[in-house]
């Protein structure tokens, strides 16, 4: 606890001094830094905060980059105007995690029009080839990897309950789509229940409690993210029904890893947030310096199971 408070105070201090530092103008070593505008959809999102951490870590390592981070608060229009600001500021490159996959096309066109390299991170969209580069995973793959492992654990048969994230979210659509592709390949597996719990632990828990009351046989709960999966685990545990139900999540957050370690969460999928972040910034920096960059940079999804969980625990340390 004390550490926490101390950390908080240190953070405030750092923040204040960072703000104070801004006034100085150029950096101390006199070298002109690369200005890279980073447009993120939501500072509140936990997974994205890991991605941002990956970026800042890379920024420190590289030394010649100055990242300008802005929060669109999940508002596509706001993100657009933030990118407009980047362009008028004359940044050297832009890295963007799009709020939605519709408006990002326009944003990319804007950057192209201003001749500023733009790297799209984490979320693919129709027309991605117009962007300078893409860095990230392929959402549908995570759903596939997740369900393939569940199918393996169930021996290719059983009743599946799917917990969807916030309706309309790219991750919600694609991950569930990946899940269902695998289910179709296994004729003895079927979706018996499917519902949204908004990527939220409390909502996932409530939904699971209600599902348990329905009396339906459930062999596996496959959730679009770890938080909902944890909620489901807690509800199952409280009802004494966790044994015999496979629970699967996606993201591999530190909380989730603890559940994997204890065997309660049998499947998670690691979307390397920090990896995407650092790679995203790296590609943007290269493009800013005029270097040729790879168009599609896939950061692989990795399957997390109780067997290999230790590797990922260490990643966060």
């Amino acid at each position: 606890m004390k550490k926490k408070v101390l950390g908080f105070m240190v953070m405030m201090l750092v923040l204040t001094s960072a703000l104070a530092g801004c006034g100085d103008g150029g950096s101390a070593d006199g070298e002109e830094k690369l200005k890279i505008g980073v447009a993120l959809p939501d500072f509140d999102d936990k997974w994205l905060s890991y991605l941002q951490d990956g970026m800042t870590t890379y920024e420190e390592e590289a030394g010649n980059i100055e990242g300008i981070y802005v929060d669109a608060m999940n508002d596509a229009a706001k993100q657009m105007s933030q990118v407009e600001t980047f362009i008028s500021q004359g940044v050297d490159a832009i890295a963007i995690v799009p709020v939605d996959t519709e408006s990002v096309g326009t944003i990319v066109d804007m950057a192209n029009g201003a001749d500023i390299p733009i790297v799209v991170v984490n979320r693919v969209y129709e027309g991605i080839e117009d962007a300078t580069a893409y860095v990230g995973g392929n959402s549908i793959d995570s759903g596939i990897i997740q369900m393939e492992e569940v199918a393996k654990l169930l021996g290719g048969k059983g009743n599946i309950a799917i917990m969807n994230g916030t309706p309309g979210h790219e991750a919600e659509i694609k991950r569930t789509e990946g899940n269902k592709q695998v289910i179709e390949e296994n004729p003895d597996m079927q979706v018996v229940l499917e519902k949204n719990a908004d990527f939220d632990r409390a909502k996932g828990m409530t939904l699971m409690e209600n599902w348990l009351q329905s009396g339906d046989q459930i062999d596996a709960v496959v959730a679009n993210n770890d938080e909902m999966a944890i909620g489901a685990i807690m509800a199952l545990e409280a009802a004494g029904k966790l044994d015999g139900v496979v629970v699967a999540g996606i993201d591999g957050t530190p909380d989730a890893l603890e559940y994997v370690e204890s065997g309660k969460l049998q499947v998670s999928v690691f979307q390397d947030a920090a990896g995407q972040g650092s790679k995203g910034l790296e590609v943007a920096a290269k493009a800013a310096q005029g270097e040729e960059v790879e168009k599609m940079n896939f950061i692989d999804f990795e399957l997390i199971t109780p067997d290999n969980v230790q590797t990922y625990v260490e990643k966060w340390q």
């Binding site: 969807n164 309706p167 018996v192 949204n196 209600n210």
Partner: peptide
């Protein structure tokens, strides 16, 4: 309402 609709697997929408 929430609970009943969950039990009946009515969509969130």
């Amino acid at each position: 309402m929430n609970n009943g609709l969950d039990l009946m697997n009515v969509s969130s929408y």
